[in-house]
């Protein structure tokens, strides 16, 4: 087995692992039980999604995926912060 085959297989395995990770986070997001659990699960969900997009980038050899990951990393934080503020006071902007 050549090194290239190992790389192809490990990237595939990594993608499957990340998809399972996203599924687990989505399950926690649906189950709750409370609102803060859902927001926390959303946070974990977008981090796993960002890693998945980066491994897609390695798989296809395209650098376009980097920009998508960058946008996710920024928007994910804004979403978490706004939702946390909303949980704290009942409104996102004071």
């Amino acid at each position: 087995m050549s090194a290239g085959t190992i790389l192809v297989w490990s990237v595939t395995v990594a993608e499957i692992a990340l998809v399972i990770a996203m599924a687990l986070a989505a399950y926690r997001m649906l189950r709750g039980p409370r609102a803060q659990d859902r927001v926390l699960a959303l946070d974990a969900f977008y981090i796993a999604g960002m890693s998945l997009i980066l491994t897609f980038g390695i798989e296809t050899g395209e650098t376009v995926y980097f920009e998508a990951a960058l946008v996710i990393s920024l928007l994910g934080f804004v979403a978490t912060a706004a939702l946390a503020k909303f949980l704290m006071r009942g409104e996102p902007i004071e």
């Binding site: 990594a14 990770a21 996203m22 926690r28 890693s51 491994t55």
Partner: peptide, 12 residues
């Protein structure tokens, strides 16, 4: 790649 995705999976 395997280590990073494994850790993410353990985290979730």
């Amino acid at each position: 790649v395997l280590f990073g995705s494994g850790l993410t999976l353990i985290g979730t």
